[in-house]
């Protein structure tokens, strides 16, 4: 199946290349957006900002969650502010009760011809609560996600491919009246690679969507799965939202 899919992809590339072979039109210059974008690597103009809201869904493998729910949807919010000297800062938040996080980030970008690059780092706490039948549990910890991203503009669209490492620190779990701290110190928990597409509308808004692949230890993402497996598993992520 993988060979067939790869062959189809190759065919598409071949076709698209052939399609462009006799096209003599000049590449269009991408019009810079009037305001900041949320995910595109190129830093916004100094003190330019934008805010967005959306949804994020991670689809966990059943070998970890067994017969429990695989899809973990989260409501997301992002705020980005441009800074001088090609820096930018952003705040990204996710929430779903059992898994919430707030991360503050900083990035620095550079541009090479049409491509933009950025180095970024985010740091912040994550926390979760469950008080349903059979649960009297909460947990929190710190997570850091250093990464790089590359961006490509095309007409009114901005593609951003970001790769981040996930570094987790101690996990503090409260069960009833008992508290345990596990895994002291920084731990490399995995990576996340995301492709995001932002479309600049005439109205000024920017809808965005994307998909990603996570390669992480199960308990980073689903601390409630209580898996003691340290091997990393691969699973997809989907994002969509709107920047105002």
């Amino acid at each position: 199946m993988r060979a067939s899919a790869a062959l189809v992809a190759l065919a598409m590339v071949a076709t698209a290349s052939l399609a462009s072979a006799d096209d003599t039109s000049m590449p269009e210059v991408a019009t810079p957006p009037a305001r900041a974008l949320l995910f595109y690597p190129e830093s916004p103009r100094a003190y330019d900002w934008r805010v967005g809201a959306g949804l994020l869904v991670d689809v966990l493998p059943t070998r970890v969650v067994e017969s429990e729910q695989r899809q973990i949807p989260q409501v997301t919010g992002v705020f980005r502010l441009g800074l001088p000297a090609h820096f930018a800062t952003d705040l990204r938040a996710r929430a779903i009760l059992i898994q919430n996080s707030i991360e503050l980030g900083v990035s620095w970008s550079a541009r090479v011809h049409a491509l933009s690059f950025a180095f970024q780092n985010h740091l912040g706490p994550w926390f979760g609560f469950v008080g349903l039948e059979g649960f009297d549990t909460s947990a929190w910890g710190l997570v850091e996600t250093p990464g790089v991203s590359i961006g490509l503009p095309w007409r009114e669209v901005r593609f951003s491919l970001a790769g981040e490492a996930i570094i987790t620190f101690a996990q503090h779990t409260t069960l009833g009246d008992a508290t345990r701290t596990s895994r002291q110190g920084a731990t490399f928990s995995g990576t996340v690679t995301t492709l995001t597409v932002e479309t600049l509308l005439e109205s000024g808004g920017v809808p965005y969507f994307g998909a990603g692949i996570l390669w992480t230890q199960p308990d980073y993402q689903a601390w409630l799965a209580f898996s003691d497996e340290r091997a990393r598993v691969i699973y997809p992520r989907f994002v969509a939202g709107y920047a105002f």
């Binding site: 199946m1 993988r2 992809a9 462009s20 096209d23 590449p27 490509l152 492709l195 691969i234 997809p236």
Partner: peptide, 26 residues
């Protein structure tokens, strides 16, 4: 246009790998 086509091809290759990597059974 040429760069557009190559970009699309690259995206689709990534998607193909993405689809094929979903199985995690050891």
């Amino acid at each position: 246009m040429r760069s557009d086509a190559r970009l699309v091809g690259l995206v689709l290759m990534i998607l193909t790998a993405f689809v094929g990597s979903c199985s995690t059974r050891g």
